[in-house]
Every structure is written in C-alpha cells, then in structure tokens.
Design a protein around this nucleic acid. Structure first.
Lengths: 333, 333
DNA sequence: TCGCTTCACTGATACGTTTCAGTGAAACGC
DNA sequence: GCGTTTCACTGAAACGTATCAGTGAAGCGA
C-alpha cells in the first residue's frame, strides 16, 4: 500500500543543490570533487535512491546483464552449466538472462534477437544451429561467446571450444578396448545441416577402429532417449554397447534397460559424455569436461568483451575419461 | 559492421502519415480503424520495425517478464522446476528472469528488489526466508506467487502450497511400516527462524510414530549432503534409515554410502522427497509432487495476477508416494 | 599579465515508447 | 435540427537516466 514512490535522480540533485548530470557522474565515480562525491552519496543514501535500471538501459544502451541462450535445458548437464554460469556472473555483479532454445533453431533465432533488444551486454550461447546466418549480424552488434563444438565461423567475440574429436576418440577407443565391436551411438537431435562435424567424426573413427556402429538421434533428454533406447535394446541383434553423446541420453538408456530387465553393464555397456554429477552415483563411465573451467572461461570472456577489453579469443577444452563401471567386456552370447 | 539502425515508431508513423501515438495504438490492437491497422502493419513489416522493449518498459512500467527467484538452484529438483516454469511461461509469450538466492536470505532480498526494479510483471518465488519483512512491501508493488511450504503470511497474490505435513507423515509412516525405528533426518539448510513448520512436524510425527530420530541439516546439494551423510554413516550406532528432505540430499547419501562400501537398501534405507527424474533410475523411494501441475499452477496464477485478473488464490498440492527399492526392512545386526 | 589547459559542473537533449487530454467529424436519439 | 456520444486520431508530456557541448573558474608556465 504505502507505496512510496522511488526517489529520482532529480530529487537527489535538488537535495544536494547540484544538477542531475553531476549526480549521475558522481554516482558512477567520474570526475567530481571529493566533497561533491560525499554529498551525493549521503543524499542518495538518505533518500534511498537507486538508479532505475530500465531508464539507465534506455539512455546508455547497457544493462549489466548477460544473455545465456542454452541449446536445450532438457539436458541435465546444460542445466548444470546454466546454473554455474548464473552463479559465476553474479560473483562479478552481472546477471544472467537465461533462455532455452529447446533444440529449435527458429526459436534460437527469435530468442537471440530478443536478447539483443533487451540490451544485454553480451551473450553466451550453446548454438543449436551454429551455421545460421544471423549469428554474424548479432556478433556485430554485441559480444557473443559460443560454447561448444561447431562454432560461429569466427564471427564471435570469443569461443570456448570442446575438443569433441578427441572426446569421441577417447570414448570409442575405450569401448573398443573393452572388447566391443557392435556399438550403437545415440546423439542429441540437431537441425539437419550438411556437416555435423562430431557425427561425421564418430563415423570416421568407428571405421578406423573397426567398429560396427549404428547412429541414431535420441532427442535431448532422459525421456526421449529412453524411448529410442527401448527400440534399440529390443532388437534381436542388439548392440553390446551404447555410446551416448550426453549423460542425459545415457540416463535414458539406463531407464530403458531397467524397464526391460536388462542390467548395465552385464547385458549392455553404456558410455556417457559430459560427466554430470549424477553419473558418479550411477557408475557411468563417461567423457569428462571441466564444467567449472568452462564456466569460468565463458564468463571471463564475455565480461571482458562487454567491457571492450578483448577480441576473439579461443579457449580449447580438453576431455578427460572418467572410468567407472558401466563399460565392461561384453558377455559371450 | 553494417549495423543498420533499428526503425523507430516515428519512422513508421512518417511512412503511414499517422502520428506515433496512432501507430502505438494500432500495433497493440486498440481502437483504430481497420484500414489504419492494415497500413501500420504493412509499414512496420517493411521497415522491420519492432517495438523496443526497454523503451516500452520505461514508458509503460511493464516488461512481459516474470521473475523467478529460486531458493537454491543447487537442488536438482528446483532446477527442474525452474526449467519447467521457464518453458511454461514461454508458451504464454512471457519470459522468465531466473535468479538464484543460493539459500542466502540477504541475497534473496537483494535479488527480489532488483527484480522489482527490472519491472517484472510478476514474481514467482520459493522463499528462503518466508518470514522476512520485505515480502509485504514487495507484494504491494507487484504480484507475487509463492511456491512451497511456509509462506508469506497472506501478503502474496497467490500461493502454491505443498502439503508438507502430509508428505512428512507419509514418508515417516512408510519407513516405520518397513520396520525402521532409528532414523536420521537430513533437512536442507535454512535460515534459523523460530518456527520451521516442517521440521517441527517431523519431530512431532516421529514421536507419534515411536521413532528415534536424529535431525541434521545438510546443505542444499549433493556434495554437502554427502559430507554430512558420511559423518552419519560412520558412527557406530548408525541409523537403519535416512529420510532426506529432498532428493538431492538423498543422492548425497547414496554417494556417501557408495564411498563407504555400504549399499542401499541392504545396509541403509534411504527415503527421498520430491521425486526428481533421476530417482527412478536410482530406485529411490520418495515422496512425489506433481511437478507439472505445480508449474502450471504457478504460471497460471502469476500470469493472471499480472493481468490484474485474480487475487490471492491458494492452490494446495497433495503428495504421493513413489515406492521403489531404497527402503526395505532393516537387516538384523 | 596573458594565453592555455584542466577541472568540476551545468543545461539541454536524446533514448523510444506509452498515455493523457483533447479535437474534429460522424453518428445518434428525440 | 440540436445536443450528446462515440470514434479515430493527434500533440505533448511523461518515464528516469546518460551524455554532449559548453562554461566559468582555477591553475599553470613563461
């Protein structure tokens, strides 16, 4: 009720006998005398004045917010990433505007443009469709840092790149070394683009390693992949191992296996990719990325770029292998 | 580079020979002739005009955004909730500004006020400290819908209430019926308030059921609770069952148990609370809430309230029991 | 003393919309 | 045919800040 109207900069100006401009300068620590500084500070405190972020955004074109556009938040690892980035930004007094493209390129475009209109100071994105044209325009009007694999053709301010080729090789070699020959590969659904580097690499590597693979797309989350996995595991010639291109997908395989009365790793080996915190509990052997390092790198890059301090840096993340229990040699049949 | 400046409403006005005001009205479908409507639509399309959300927010005081202030995003179930709410809002052409209080009441206050300054049209909150004073002021200046247990003393526009008393009773009765007498209770860390209904109820119920309980606070996430659980499980008189006040905490117990070579449920029974998707995979017996229903209810209430359509509604969620494998009768020792 | 620079501050305008108070014309009731 | 509504629209004033182009005074070197 009481609803006291907020104090404006004009009132602070009046209280101190200065002009609004001087108050504005003082509050942002620019070129004012020590005495004025003090007076303004005090008056602002007394009036409970705080600059209106919307008016500030309109006038200055900056908001202090960083947009975070996730490829698909159905993926648990991406959830962790989003939470981590939100937290890291907060520690730098920036705030994240988190949006979810839900795997849809059209939505990705809409949201990205919307974020720009919201005057975010920078954008962190895990592109669904890295080949889309609008990224170039977007990167011209604000700092963009891309996280992931196939990136934005050098239009970005910066990139945190996963060495997925290496990751895939590690995973497949591990599975091969455990004795598997017939392995299914479950990848997240992505827009059909002529070149999907990771998938292409999977096929090439499988060939090199003499693996008989079967690549399928399996949605983004646990539920979708469970369905696909059910189809896969009920076939007469079911694979002895499944390599999932995200831990979330692997969880779906666990679910499907459980429902079919199959056990991991005795009846089917499962190899993951990401290393979500839950994977430890499930004993999922998986490719590991340094989530914390990725978060820090992305935040550092976007903050620097939004301050005009840096240009097009590229940080490459190396994968590790978390060996747990879910991949064992195949049983004789 | 090219950076063509955005079209403004003035340019559309000029192109149509109307006043900016008329264009503004037309674009929002208010009181204009059919012909004008058409002309404006066409001109806007040709110029690629879209209203600037910031300017709009400054002038109208509305943004179309809904703030979502989570108690602690370290909790996986709250992550799911946030993702779900974000998605549901998007379906109503609203967008969520998701912030994480990280269990800190001071931060919660700061962020809530910040959200108001951002002119969100409404606020969905899982309060860390429901007793805090500022909620009253806040609810006076914008629609607030609270999700959870101990709520905001009627200051809110609406509430989605969990019947935690019932949930706790169900959980404890189930554990008792399985034959457990000595059970530990792990609750999330909350600010110390004189009355914590749920905890108080836990103690009362335990007494009624003749349970010997040991209540401990265990952080919010998997990592913290694992540490607490390790302490608990290495005691000579370790409890035969652990009731965790969130599935995330239960996961921590699994982790601790795994590291100690203890197995669930043979060596220790674990009862969860929330029913996160992963709990199915782990076979965690848990109290189940209708996440989807909660999401829909919260979004519906906040959207209605932000449109000035509803006042103080209260929706009560009933718990269910998901019986899985993690609670079995205690082994003789 | 003079000119030049630096400093601290002011006045005005810009940012791009919404919205309030009209305004003239047409429609309407009687 | 006259007063009253309604309609479609206009002009101008918000909204609350940042910032640009000055401005007067002080400081400085020669």
């Amino acid at each position: 009720m009481a609803q006291r109207k907020r104090a404006t900069i004009r009132e602070v100006a009046q209280a101190t006998g200065l002009s609004p401009a001087a108050v504005s300068y003082a509050l942002r620590g620019m070129q004012v005398s020590e005495e004025t500084m003090q007076r303004v500070r005090q008056a602002a405190a007394e009036l409970g004045y705080e600059a209106d972020p919307i008016a500030r955004a309109l006038a200055s074109g900056r908001t202090g917010m960083i947009g975070l556009l996730c490829g698909s938040l159905e993926d648990l690892w991406q959830q962790s990433l989003a939470v981590g980035i939100g937290r890291a930004l907060r520690d730098k007094d920036r705030y994240a505007l988190i949006l979810d493209a839900a795997g849809d390129p059209a939505r990705e475009r809409t949201l990205a443009l919307q974020l720009r209109d919201q005057r975010v100071d920078g954008l962190i994105v895990q592109p669904v469709d890295p080949a889309a044209r609008f990224w170039a325009d977007l990167a011209d009007s604000l700092p963009v840092v891309a996280i992931g694999d196939a990136l934005l053709h050098g239009h970005t301010a910066a990139e945190v790149v996963f060495d997925n080729r290496r990751g895939v090789t590690m995973a497949l070699e591990y599975v091969r070394d455990k004795g598997h020959r017939h392995v299914a590969v479950l990848t997240p659904t992505r827009p059909s683009t002529p070149d999907r580097p990771a998938d292409v690499h999977v096929i090439a590597e499988a060939e090199r390693l003499g693996l008989d693979i079967d690549v399928r797309t399996a949605g983004q989350g646990l539920a979708d992949s469970a369905e696909v996995a059910t189809g896969l595991l009920t076939r007469p010639d079911r694979p002895t191992a499944v390599f999932c291109f995200s831990d979330s997908i692997a969880y779906g395989v666990y679910k499907a296996a459980g429902e079919l009365g199959l056990s991991v790793p005795q009846d089917v080996a499962v190899m993951g990719y990401d290393d979500h915190p839950m994977s430890e509990l499930l004993g999922l052997t998986t490719v590991n990325w340094d989530l914390d390092g990725i978060v820090r790198a992305a935040v550092k890059l976007v903050v620097a770029a939004s301050d005009g301090k840096a240009h097009h840096r590229r940080i490459v993340q190396a994968p590790g292998l978390r060996e747990r229990l879910s991949v064992q040699p195949p049983a004789r049949r």
